[in-house]
């Protein structure tokens, strides 16, 4: 499914300084029963965000009105666990276009790239600087420039570059997805399949 093009994103950010945030926290399994991709943002971080009776947990960052923005900043090893793309959908549907962490789980990172969420991996030191900057001023803005592959804390001017492979970068910049690419080389695939027994 195609998604919005991504080039430069300047936004305040929501901090979640917890390590090993797993996909069962991002979207618990009981919310995976849809047959369409919609409404997942409502259940993002469901059990950290709401009590069993549906009332919001005041201390959780998504319920704190002083934090907002299109960037989610998480602790090390963000997105570990399941392959459920619903986790990336929930992040996107909630309104985030970028997740920043010092380390991402593999499948979650790939899923993000496939649904239009940019995973930005920074050094542990730079992650600390971001958390510190947001703590000092919750309205602190981060600027993410995909073309230049840089992330900048605007208040301090501190900047770091991040990695993304050239193919995925072009896809994100243009809002293309892998299926379009694969359908275009279907002839090659069919030849390959003929030579590959079951």
């Amino acid at each position: 499914m195609a998604y919005d093009k991504f080039n430069i994103l300047t936004s305040s950010a929501v901090p979640l300084p917890i390590e090993n945030v797993d996909t069962d926290q991002i979207i618990p399994a009981r919310f995976l029963k849809a047959t369409e991709r919609k409404g997942f943002g409502d259940n993002l971080f469901r059990d950290w965000r709401y009590n069993a009776d549906g009332s919001p947990k005041e201390h959780f960052v998504l319920n704190n009105p002083i934090f907002s923005g299109k960037i989610l900043v998480g602790g090390k090893n963000f997105g570990s666990g399941s392959s459920r793309e619903h986790a990336a959908w929930a992040v996107y549907d909630y309104g985030f276009r970028c997740v920043v962490s010092s380390f991402f789980a593999d499948i979650f990172r790939g899923n993000c790239l496939n649904v239009g969420v940019l995973p930005v991996q920074v050094s542990p030191g730079f992650l600390d600087k971001i958390f510190t900057a947001i703590e000092a001023d919750p309205k602190t803005e981060l600027k993410i420039d995909l073309s230049e592959q840089t992330i900048t804390i605007l208040a301090t001017g501190e900047s770091e570059s991040f990695e993304i492979n050239g193919y995925k970068k072009q896809n994100m910049l243009n809002g293309f997805d892998d299926i379009d690419y694969l359908l275009n080389i279907k002839k090659d695939i069919e030849v390959f399949a003929e030579n590959t027994p079951l």
């Binding site: 499914m1 399941s82 392959s83 459920r84 793309e85 619903h86 990336a88 593999d106 499948i107 790939g110 899923n111 496939n114 649904v115 492979n165 193919y167 997805d177 892998d178 299926i179 690419y181 694969l182 359908l183 279907k186 695939i189 399949a193």
Partner: peptide
């Protein structure tokens, strides 16, 4: 290995996925 739903769609439609070699 496990894949996301976008990749499930890729495999259903083209029998391929696109991944860097680990």
């Amino acid at each position: 290995f496990g894949i996301g739903t976008s990749e499930v769609e890729m495999v259903l439609s083209t029998q391929c996925i696109m991944q860097p070699k680990p």
